[in-house]
Design a protein around this nucleic acid. Structure first.
Lengths: 92, 92
DNA sequence: ATGCCTATCTATAAGCG
DNA sequence: TCGCTTATAGATAGGCA
């Protein structure tokens, strides 16, 4: 999106890469926030720039809660088949 | 984006919310992947739908590595001030 | 309830000051 | 090198098969 299209491959020019990182990071964070609100989703986004800087975003429940939930989901995935003791609002 | 614009607030209609979730989740994952490639960023994205389903994406280094790195970064944040032993390619 | 389509709305690549 | 601007590529809301 922009005056010209670009290929999805590493941007070699450092300045340009950092500018693009800054712009796209913002856009990604915004999209993440919108998804969380619009669809009532619980999410976490962790980003490290190529210079090693950390940026993150999480929906209301917070990083710790989401990471815990992630670990639980992974455990279920590899063992438990009927997680009936959770999801009080699992409808549809 | 779309035939009409929408407000960023929870979508009440369940069907519509799930359709939107599916579409936007895909878009978010794509953007995350593009950011990782274009800007050589290391990132992790964890998403739980409102029905409790898990979706995730990580750049090449993988979820475990990124979560470890996240914890380390957090520790540094609250103590170490000069992480000079890293970033071999920190030029700008 | 799905998947594909496209008119519109957004994000953003280049430019400009 | 740094924001702010704007033309254009890209995402997607609502439709339709």
């Amino acid at each position: 999106m922009g005056r010209g299209k670009i290929a999805i491959e590493r941007i070699d020019n450092t300045t340009n890469r950092q500018v693009t990182f800054s712009k796209r990071r913002g856009g990604l964070m915004k999209k993440a926030r919108e998804l969380a609100i619009l669809c009532d989703a619980d999410l976490a986004l962790i980003v490290f720039s190529s210079t090693g800087r950390l940026y993150d975003f999480t929906s209301s429940s917070g990083m710790e809660a989401i990471l815990e939930r992630y670990q639980e989901a992974k455990e279920e995935h590899s063992g438990v088949l009927n997680p009936s003791s959770e999801n009080p609002e699992l409808n549809s």
